[in-house]
Amino acid sequence: MSEKAKVSAVGLTKKFDDLLVLDNISFDIAKGEFVCIVGPTGCGKTTFLNILSKIWPATSGELLIDGEKADPKKHNIAFAFQESSAFPWLTVEQNIRFGMEQKNLPKEIINERTEQMLELLELKEARNYFPRQISASMESRVVIGRSFALHPDLLLMDEPYAQLDIEFRYHLEDAVLKLSKMTGSTVIFVTHNIEEAVYLAERCIVLTNKPTTVKTIEKIDLPYPRDICSKEFTDIRDRITDYIKWW
């Protein structure tokens, strides 16, 4: 299994001074897999992603991509943050192009993917607007577009829909699933919302309270698009809810 893993976390540990937040977390993720991480508030989900993306150093442990140490300069990692991170000085279109231009992708590819993202995320009309001129939900879509446009090896998403209204969430969840299949990106998606996790994920990693370890990894073997009212769906959802409720 481990030769085939796209992303492996090996004994990731993070301490803030004396506060042990992440305690020896290990797992493998296959190429193109969609994994959700759920866990109680404040358990260290954001911290975990910050370490995976190399924004912060781990206290100990390693993150491997394709068996090599992860490096943002070499690997293609994208991150949709919990807070909105669309650059206010760039237009919607320029925001989506930004990452690709940083990575010096060929012009035709940049143009093609930009159009594709604008189309898929329904941002075409807003392409020349600045972030302050658009709604929070549009801004989230801009960040999602900017991330997926990179066709990243690893895409980290930290509750990207926290600010969105329910109706739009489902719409975007479908878009994200479609994009992840299309780009073949490996996605790690953090959420509070267990229903959302079961709707999206092929596997769901459940974290414990601090000091945080992996409580369990739940395989969700349901076909897409999933029916949130079906028995199988609610069974899995309730099982995961129980894991989290246990403490």
């Binding site: 910050n50 993306s53 190399k54 924004i55 943002p72 300069k73 990692i77 994208a78 991150f79 943050f81 807070e83 909105s84 991170s85 650059f87 206010p88 000085w89 760039l90 930004f98 990452g99 940083q102 990575k103 990179l150």
Partner: peptide, 24 residues
Amino acid sequence: IYEKAGKVIGANRKEMLLEIVIPA
């Protein structure tokens, strides 16, 4: 958050300054 975003994209120090910090 903008610095983080730049870091993840893999911007080097010069790009960070010219394309993120100064515009911001």
